[in-house]
Design a protein around this nucleic acid. Sequence first.
DNA 1: AAACCGTGGAA
DNA 2: TTTCCAAGGTT
Length: 392
Amino acid sequence: MAINAREERETPMPASAPHPARIAAIRRRLLDWWRRDGRDLPWRRRRTPYRVWVAEMMLQQTQVETVRPYFARWLRRFPSFRALAAARQDEVLKCWEGLGYYSRARNMHAAARTVVHELGGRLPRTTAELRTLPGIGPYTAGAIASIAFGADEPVLDGNVIRVLCRLLAIRRNPSDARVRKSLWQLAGRLVPPGEAGPFNEALMDLGATICTPRRPDCRNCPLRTICDARAKGLQEQLPVKTRRKATPHYDVVVAVIIKGGRVLIDRRNDAGLLGGLWEFPGGKIEPGESPVQAVRREVREEIGIEVAPRSKPFITVSHAYSHFRITLQAFRCRHVRGRARAIGPAAVRWVDADKLTTYAFPRANQKVLRALQTLLSDRSSSAGESGKPEIA
DNA sequence: AAACCGTGGAA
DNA sequence: TTTCCAAGGTT
């Protein structure tokens, strides 16, 4: 780890900076434990730079069990930087569909093109160069450099923060930038030269399987005899956490406009929430407005056409995003007049009802889509068992 | 610095 | 049901 001597003087060491003997004990116990009890994960079978990068991007704020199927599918579909760089954004987002934080997928697409077209097809080896690629911040740079390239770099993620705060009984708030900085320094001192990758993976495995946020399994912890929080009975209290503020709630409507067997959908702008994904047109209900009025207004404003919604929604969906919640009502609509055009969205398209699943939709829209298909298939099967979908 | 950016599972 | 939070990054 490259340590800037000036910053080293200006930043106060943690009061509980470990002694060399303790550092050695932490390293040895953690590595011994990990070689026996470390997790066998798909992306660890072969630690190539591409596979490590894909895994680390998917694992940002996302649990291992969620990532597992996505990782397998992604590697099959985009086995290399070159394959990813050659793909279209719609294909990339379809492969990411449902994983959330979609800027990760768009950033990976852009980064792959930079790697292929400007970096000779290879990922940089240093954290500083890695950080210049979109989607790679301090954590991911350290993870790739240490795990894929064997560089002596630390990582600091939620797991490592939790383990370190408990191990040294750090009562300061890790969301404080100064505390975060000293935790990075601490992590850097702990990294055993030449074994940063295994050590970092061990630290994260410990945090994920033993030193968990709730009810840590201290009896089976390799560090139980040298853990300050354990000695003081503080393991459940650390790390200290700040109250998160209440998330707002919005009432939202969407329009399912069907005409001649085709459905009107739009693609969201790349910047912002759910960027680049397709959706049914709609938006928030304004104060004093009825749901049906909101449908008509939103479709007029965003798509430029007049529609006649049915009086009642065919499904109501509750959904939580990262920083707000919604209740979404979906209305089937008749197209009254006008030619659809992308006013607010990036694009609009009339799509065959049975081709909708080839587009990348956010989860809330997927719930609407499933309800719609159930509706349409029930109708066609009860209408005459012809097997042909009949779409009004 | 603080807000923004998804989703699913656990308790 | 609600809240928490999980291998963070960007602006």
